[in-house]
Simulated scan of single mutants.
Amino acid sequence: MPVVIVYPPDEDGGRRVRVDGVILGRAFRVEDVAEFLRRAGLEGVDDLDVVAAGWITWRGGGPDVWEH
């Protein structure tokens, strides 16, 4: 599995998503994180996978935290 880090929400509610050391963008919801992971080559990842994945490190709150 890749190393996935979702950073704390910024002032706009966006959370940077990093996969294997590369920032892929800012997510504003779980669906965005799933899309970044699919673009990184993790085919078949969906929203439920993102919420339940023990291999995603959520900093500054879990997948339910999107406000600064």
Results as ranks from 00 to 15, higher is better:
1 M>Q: 04
2 P>M: 01
3 V>C: 01
3 V>I: 02
4 V>C: 06
5 I>V: 15
7 Y>D: 11
7 Y>N: 05
7 Y>V: 01
8 P>D: 07
8 P>A: 10
9 P>A: 15
11 E>V: 13
12 D>A: 15
12 D>I: 07
13 G>A: 11
13 G>V: 03
14 G>W: 08
18 R>D: 10
18 R>W: 02
19 V>Y: 07
19 V>E: 00
19 V>P: 02
19 V>A: 07
20 D>C: 01
21 G>Y: 08
23 I>Q: 08
24 L>D: 01
26 R>Q: 07
26 R>K: 13
28 F>K: 03
28 F>P: 03
29 R>E: 13
29 R>V: 03
30 V>E: 11
31 E>H: 01
33 V>D: 05
34 A>R: 03
34 A>K: 04
34 A>W: 04
34 A>D: 05
35 E>K: 10
38 R>P: 02
39 R>K: 14
40 A>S: 15
42 L>P: 02
43 E>A: 15
44 G>T: 03
45 V>F: 03
46 D>H: 14
46 D>Y: 02
48 L>N: 15
48 L>Q: 15
51 V>D: 05
53 A>D: 15
53 A>I: 05
56 I>V: 14
56 I>Y: 12
56 I>S: 10
58 W>K: 08
60 G>M: 08
60 G>S: 14
60 G>E: 11
61 G>S: 11
61 G>V: 12
61 G>P: 13
63 P>Y: 14
64 D>C: 06
66 W>G: 09
66 W>L: 09
67 E>W: 10
67 E>H: 12
